[in-house]
Amino acid sequence: MFDTMTMTKVLGGVCGTLLVFLLGKWAAEEIYHPGGHGDHEQAYVIPVEGGDDAAPVEEGPDFAEVYAMADAAAGEGQWRACAACHKLEDGENATGPHLYGVVGRAVGSVDGFGNYSGALNDAADVWTPENLNAFLENPRGYAPGTGMTYNGMRKIEDRANLIAYLDSLDG
């Protein structure tokens, strides 16, 4: 019905039309959203009585309370996510430093492991349960520039259980 030249022209027309639409979308984005999609200051703010005090943000449970009730046996299950890069045996490093005795240990102090990022030393001096909690929640947010690629552990109970498990290993 169609020869190859006609099919080539039809396909070229469809591709050309798609290209025009994509370029139009890009131009519209640049015109109406200059500078990308980042946070921008509102041009006009309507003051509302009560303002920010109207709805207090609920913080959630305190880490000290959750950690006091942590279950080290449940934390052993959370360890699997860490086992890909860390070892539990004292002196055995892997991609990351060993985690034997990590609770209460000085940050960046494992002998034989030289791949620490400076971001960790800037973030804390000692791996207290609170520091470990903040780091495990969001490693890159706690220590920007860290070499740890883990995305973080969302549940506070899971973090508390894991920290209790790590703390139970060294006595």
Rank of each mutant, 00 (worst) to 15 (best):
Y100L: 04
E76L: 12
G24K: 02
R159W: 06
G35W: 11
P139C: 05
D62E: 06
W26K: 14
Y44A: 15
A124P: 10
N133Q: 04
V45F: 08
K9W: 09
F21E: 08
E29Q: 01
D167Y: 05
L11T: 09
H98W: 09
E49I: 11
G152Q: 09
A73R: 07
W127H: 03
Y165E: 05
P129A: 11
L162M: 00
I163M: 06
W79K: 07
G13P: 01
A160R: 01
H37K: 13
E92Y: 09
G16Y: 04
A70C: 07
E130S: 03
L162N: 10
H33G: 09
L166D: 07
T4E: 15
P97Y: 04
A55H: 13
A164R: 08
M148H: 04
E29D: 15
T4I: 14
C82Q: 05
I46Q: 10
V103H: 10
A94Y: 00
A81R: 07
A72N: 06
G108H: 08
K87C: 00
T8E: 08
R105P: 09
G96D: 10
Q78R: 09
K9R: 13
C15N: 07
G145N: 06
P34A: 12
T95V: 14
Y100E: 00
D39T: 11
E30V: 12
K87I: 01
V20R: 10
A84E: 05
H37W: 12
A84W: 04
H40S: 15
P47Y: 05
V45Y: 08
D90A: 11
A164Y: 01
Y165M: 09
E76G: 02
A106F: 02
K155Q: 14
F113S: 06
G101T: 03
I156R: 09
A68R: 00
Q42L: 15
D111E: 15
G91C: 01
D90T: 02
E157A: 00
D125W: 06
M148S: 01
A54E: 06
A43T: 14
M148L: 05
N121D: 14
N161G: 10
G51I: 01
G145Y: 05
Y150Q: 00
D125L: 11
G38F: 13
G101L: 09
D122A: 15
I46T: 13
I163Q: 08
N115E: 15
Y142Q: 03
F21D: 08
D39F: 15
W127F: 05
A74R: 14
G114F: 03
H98G: 12
M7Q: 14
G24N: 04
P47K: 04
N138H: 10
G118S: 10
V107Y: 11
G152H: 03
C85W: 04
N138E: 10
E30H: 11
A70L: 06
F135K: 03
G77A: 01
H33P: 09
A43F: 12
P47F: 00
T128P: 07
V20C: 08
R140Y: 11
G118M: 04
E92I: 12
L11C: 03
W26C: 00
L22R: 02
H40R: 15
F63W: 08
D62P: 06
G35L: 06
Y100N: 10
N93Q: 05
A81H: 02
A134E: 14
R105N: 05
V14R: 07
I46H: 05
R159G: 05
S117T: 11
